[in-house]
Simulated scan of single mutants.
Amino acid sequence: MNEHTHSGRELDPAVMREQYRTAGLDGSGLEDDPMDQFHRWFADAVAAQLYEPNAMVVSTADAQGRPSSRTVLLKGYDARGFVFYTNYTSRKAREIDVNPQVSLLFPWHPMARQVIVTGRAERVSAEETAEYFRSRPHGSRLGAWASAQSSVIGTREELERAYAELAARYPEGAEVPVPPHWGGFLVVPEAVEFWQGRPNRLHDRLRYVGEDGGKWRVERLAP
């Protein structure tokens, strides 16, 4: 065994188990539309005071099919789908440009719940981006300019120096323009799975699948 390998039983992921004893997910109680069902579960997550309930894992793939994942904050959802914001030169944005198929995962572990979304990402309008950008804290607006997201930089000091220069140019209270390389993506769902942990790993998995005419079919998946 490599000397750097952790061998203690308390660190062995193979023996880490939780017996989920939550209420089941009865298909008869589902909303007709997955966005309405998501709203119910999101409200539950907020009421349970989960840490950053709007945190989601966004998975993309490049033109060769090589995947990448990262945690992003959901910044809006409505009948259209799910919205998040990023630098359009970032890795995820570049991958979306060549392959708009993405996956979102909301990992609400304390509630033994997950929501898994698959769909297509498309850029939101400049107007929608500007409206959200103006609502961000001043420091976050400066950060959108300071960081060429996903690019290689030499030192932390380079990033902090760029931020300081922007802070001097746009002091607190000044209008910070929207960067042309920054904006939102709307993920239009094609399928949405609601996963509820149950005892003995017999979890409830109900998936909405989009059909013609804007209707949704719900199917139960084996755990």
Rank of each mutant, 00 (worst) to 15 (best):
E190V: 08
I116W: 08
L105V: 15
S125G: 09
S150C: 06
T118R: 15
Y170R: 02
V117C: 05
L186A: 03
A164N: 09
G173I: 13
S135R: 09
P110I: 15
R134G: 09
F185A: 01
S150N: 05
S125M: 08
V176M: 01
V176F: 03
A146C: 04
E175S: 10
H138W: 11
H138A: 07
S151R: 14
R120G: 05
G143H: 04
R134L: 14
E122T: 14
Q114S: 12
G183R: 00
P179L: 05
H181G: 10
V117S: 08
V187A: 02
P180E: 08
H181C: 12
S135Y: 09
A162S: 14
G143W: 01
R156G: 04
P110A: 15
L104Y: 10
A162Y: 03
R123I: 01
A144E: 00
G119H: 05
R169G: 03
V117D: 05
A168E: 15
I153L: 14
E158A: 11
W145T: 03
V152Q: 09
F133R: 01
W108A: 07
E175N: 08
V124E: 00
W145M: 00
P110Q: 14
V117E: 02
F133W: 07
A191M: 11
V152N: 06
S125K: 05
